[in-house]
Simulated assay, not measured.
Amino acid sequence: MTLEQIDKTRYRKHLNIVIVACIAALVVGSLGIARVLILALPSDSGSHFHWNLLGVVVSCIAIGFALKRVEHHPFMTEVVYVWRLKQALNQITRKLRKIKAAAEQGDVQAMHALQFNYAGSRQLWQLDDNTITMDELAISQAQLDTLAERYNVEADASRYQSEYLKQL
């Protein structure tokens, strides 16, 4: 994955629309399905928990299929990009201890992975207005810059390959 510049206002607007649409679909779908099932197959005990649960599960699956189907639509470009960026950063975070240890030993790919992690996190936090931990990120970036200078490496986020994580 490569980092891309995206329009923050367009991203926020589209994300909010997607969230509201998903919530509305979940409410209408789950209540509608549960109501139809309750009318078609009433329970003698008066408890309809299982039909309500089934309505929620079916609605969630339908929403997932719908999102998968429209993910390539231009409206979803920014939302899908951020979703994939979060997945990529999560993969790195799960192996962060090993990546940092490899970077300490001078592993160039590890330094690229760390640079991607820091640049992607910075972008993500700015898009979501979550700038509370930016100071910690700056410290980690400074440590990476020191390592890169020690090993005479130019850490480059664009050179990060997710296949590297499979080797760790």
Rank of each mutant, 00 (worst) to 15 (best):
D135S: 13
E104H: 06
L114N: 08
L41W: 15
M76E: 03
V70R: 00
Q109R: 14
H48W: 09
S43A: 15
L168Y: 04
T9K: 15
Y151A: 09
V82F: 01
V20Y: 02
A101P: 05
M1P: 03
L147A: 11
K98M: 15
H14V: 09
L89D: 05
T9F: 14
Q105L: 14
R12L: 14
T2A: 10
L165S: 00
V28Q: 04
E104F: 01
H14D: 12
Q141F: 09
L67V: 07
Y81K: 00
L31S: 04
S140W: 11
L165M: 00
P42R: 07
L144M: 06
A113R: 02
H73C: 03
Q126A: 11
S158F: 11
L85G: 03
V57E: 06
G120N: 07
H73L: 10
L137Y: 10
I61P: 03
L124A: 01
H72P: 01
M1I: 09
N52Y: 15
R150E: 15
R150L: 12
L37M: 08
M1C: 09
V56H: 00
H14F: 12
P74E: 10
H73T: 09
T2Y: 15
V36K: 06
L124R: 04
A40G: 14
L96R: 05
L127I: 08
A40I: 07
